Amino acid sequence: MRRSRFLYFMLITATIITGLLSRHFKSIPLFVGDILWALMVYFIARFLFINKPIKFVVVASLLFCFAIEFSQLYKAPWINNLRHTLFGRLVLGEGFLWSDLLCYVVGVGIGCIIDFYILKKGPK
C-alpha cells in the first residue's frame, strides 16, 4: 500500500472516532483511551512528516505525548481552567499518571506495527 497523507488522515479520523466511542462504554478500561490518543498522535506525526524516517516519527510522537503528560504537573489557574473544558480534557488531560506514559509507548508501538506490517512499508 502506498504511503499517502489521505491514508493517514483516514487513520487519524478512525482513531478519533474509536477513542471518543471508547469513553461511552463502561466495559472499556480508561487506559484504552490513552493508548488510542497516542496512536492518533503517531498518525498525526506521520501525516505531517510523511517523508521522515519512522524513527523520527516515533521520537516526535513520544516527546509530544510525554510533554503533554508532564505538563499536567503544572497547575496554574489559567491552564486548569482550560483543562476543565472538553477540548482541554481531550488534548491536555487532567492529571499526571505514570501509567499513562506506558500507554503512550503502547499506542505509538501499535502505530509502528500498522506502518510496518499492515501498510507494508518496511523500516526507513
Rank of each mutant, 00 (worst) to 15 (best):
R2E: 06
R2N: 08
R5N: 01
R5W: 05
R5F: 05
F6I: 08
F6N: 09
F6Q: 06
L7T: 10
L7D: 04
F9R: 02
F9G: 14
M10K: 11
M10I: 14
L11F: 15
L11D: 02
T13L: 15
A14K: 03
T15R: 11
T15D: 06
I17L: 15
I17C: 12
T18Y: 01
L20I: 03
L20T: 04
L21M: 15
L21R: 09
S22N: 10
R23K: 14
H24M: 14
H24F: 06
K26G: 13
S27I: 13
F31V: 09
V32A: 12
V32T: 12
V32L: 11
V32F: 06
G33E: 06
G33I: 06
G33T: 05
D34Y: 07
D34C: 14
A38S: 15
L39Q: 05
V41K: 05
V41F: 14
V41E: 04
Y42N: 03
Y42T: 04
Y42F: 14
I44W: 01
I44K: 02
F47A: 11
F47Y: 15
F47T: 03
F49K: 10
I50L: 15
I50Q: 09
N51S: 09
N51K: 08
K52V: 02
P53E: 15
P53S: 15
P53G: 15
K55P: 00
K55I: 06
K55S: 11
F56C: 03
V57L: 09
V58D: 05
A60S: 11
A60F: 13
S61F: 07
S61R: 08
L62S: 05
L62V: 02
L63E: 00
F64H: 00
C65H: 01
F66Q: 03
A67Q: 00
A67L: 02
I68H: 02
E69D: 10
F70S: 10
Y74P: 04
Y74I: 15
K75N: 12
A76Q: 06
P77E: 08
W78T: 02
W78H: 09
N80F: 01
N80S: 09
N81H: 14
L82N: 07
R83K: 13
R83C: 08
H84W: 01
L86M: 01
L86I: 11
G88Y: 08
G88C: 07
R89Y: 07
L90M: 05
V91Y: 00
V91M: 05
L92C: 10
L92W: 05
G95R: 13
F96Q: 09
L97N: 12
W98K: 13
L102Q: 05
C103T: 08
Y104M: 10
V105D: 04
V106I: 15
V106R: 12
G107A: 04
G107K: 01
V108N: 09
I110N: 04
G111E: 04
G111M: 09
I113Y: 11
I114R: 04
D115M: 02
F116W: 12
Y117A: 13
L119S: 04
L119Y: 03
K121Y: 15
G122F: 14
G122Y: 12
G122R: 05
K124Y: 00
